[in-house]
Nucleic acid binder design. Sequence first.
DNA 1: ACACTGCCCTGCGAGC
DNA 2: TGCTCGCAGGGCAGTG
Length: 275
Amino acid sequence: MPELPEVETIRESLTAIRSATIAGVEFGTFTGCIDGREPADFQRLVTGCRVKSIGRRGKYLLLGLSSGDTIAVHLRMTGELTIADAGTPLSPHHHITFTFNDGRELRFRDIRKFGRIRLLDHADLAALDRSLGPEPLGRDLTFDRFVTMLRQRRRAIKPLLLDQTFIAGIGNIYADEALFASGIHPLRPAASLDEREAKLLLNAIRQVLTGAISRKGTTIRDYRNGLGQPGTNQDHLQIYRRDAGDPCPRCGAPVLRLIVAQRGTKLCPACQPPA
DNA sequence: ACACTGCCCTGCGAGC
DNA sequence: TGCTCGCAGGGCAGTG
């Protein structure tokens, strides 16, 4: 499932369509992925536009258009965005095809139909930006700011890391990995973390995310980059893929599985003691 | 501010 | 072999 490293990898691979002009938009039978306006309006507003930039904010992929609008794509669980040559076969799960005037296509495929594509004007884009927490790899997220952010919150740390308004881009895989790497129990109240633990956690978040980006993302089932290639970070996960009862890779204690914030959560009860 | 539920949706693997 | 069932989960609306 695409989290920050996967979306960043896709963004990088999609720079190949920068400067291409959208010649048309074709829909499959499912158009519910077009968010906030009628598919025909979306089609009309993006056709003829040049793709000026390919950016990312949190888990959103942002295609900046020559019109000034931005196509914001959220892949949710199983969304895929890939560049293909016109004529290569479409699967039943392809929902949107952007055709370019050079014969290439950008295709949106989504097995579970959770993904969403929205056309944003300047004000919408600014509102999206404001609604999201800081980028974990951004320079403006200093250690001091992170400590302050945690101190104000009584929530458990894992639900907070998954909250995109708190910090942007972390999903279930990297939350578990970062908490394991920093030895912090997922149910610890955020405000109970001392400075040393907060620093360990921020460093772990950054290390886990940059490591995953360098390996082109985590492919467990569906994830592919914009060229259809899987990542290799699944071979480097420490805790997320373990089954309950498997030995902890660090100390050998049996791995524990909890439900936290309605999500399956893996941890080592010895390395990550409760508060 | 926070927790919790239900919803969206399909594929897959376990169990029978 | 073929069925049912539970599970995977990001974000959001609604409720408490």
